[in-house]
Amino acid sequence: MQFTRKHLLGLEELTADEIRMILDTSVPFKEISERQIKKVPVLRGKTIINLFFEPSTRTRTSFEFAEKRLSADTINVGISQSSVVKGETLVDTARNLEAMRIDMVVIRHSASGAPAFLSRRIDSNVINAGDGWHEHPTQGLLDMLTIRDHFGRLEGLKVVIVGDILHSRVARSNIWGLKKMGAEVGVCGPPTLVPRAIASLGVKIYPRIEDVLAEADVLNVLRIQLERMHSNMFPSLGEYNKLYGITTAKLEKAGRDVLILHPGPMNRGVEIDSDVADGGHQVILKQVTNGVAVRMAVLFLLSGGIPAGASEAARMSES
């Protein structure tokens, strides 16, 4: 079976088989990052542009490592360097870049739908690295890979996303991906930050974290942005921590083993306490490692690589 999609815009449009293919292809790529010489010639001669209209360190670095370990030529363009500050439109930026004969565009944008917009107007492969509140598909994939590594499966697991669901592209990609892979998905957060309509996607809404801790196998704890407090979504960070923060006390009270993910960067003492973040429940740094592997798999598959070829590609540089 071959991965036939041209773009990765979100997990909503992928099938379970396609998601499984990406996750399976990530496994051999993981091993490349463990080597002395962390490079395979899979994307040699391909040019990739990382177009980041929003500040990002983690995702951009992760994509860049993935691209370089596959031997692609990469260019990073950040908002402050781009012509956007001079008033160039998104479509003109894209067309100009494409005139330089680029094979792939990795785009992060503050507007939901910006990658989809781009994909309809240029010939290159487009990879969504996060658009507005819409989707962050590679984050969803790396979260799923991390959970699967831990449990050996996704089906039947109860995964609850905690925090600001309304404004979260990570939440949406997790919901679509996990549902397709047969997990039960719930969300938990202040009702001001949880769109009620999300229940009709078959997602359970938990108003209280205590109920979540009594049931969930996995918590995906989202970053709380300070600006949400200023827009009256909740009264204070302290109260947020009291009601929804993941603390040792709450975990001990639940008395169950719960796996904890966090897409980062963390606000210690707000959505997650330091002793939890650094303790035994979490796999946060494994997520970061898996992020590179998942992105290698996505780049490889979108460039026409066959899933079975991933392990061959991984073997290639061993000689």
């Binding site: 739908g113 507005g132 509140w133 819409h134 592209r169 949406r172 769109p195 309509a197 999300i198």
Partner: peptide
């Protein structure tokens, strides 16, 4: 409009 579509598309409702 606020509803399932806005929640899905990640657009403010």
């Amino acid at each position: 409009n606020e509803g399932l579509m806005s929640a899905r598309l990640g657009l403010a409702g």
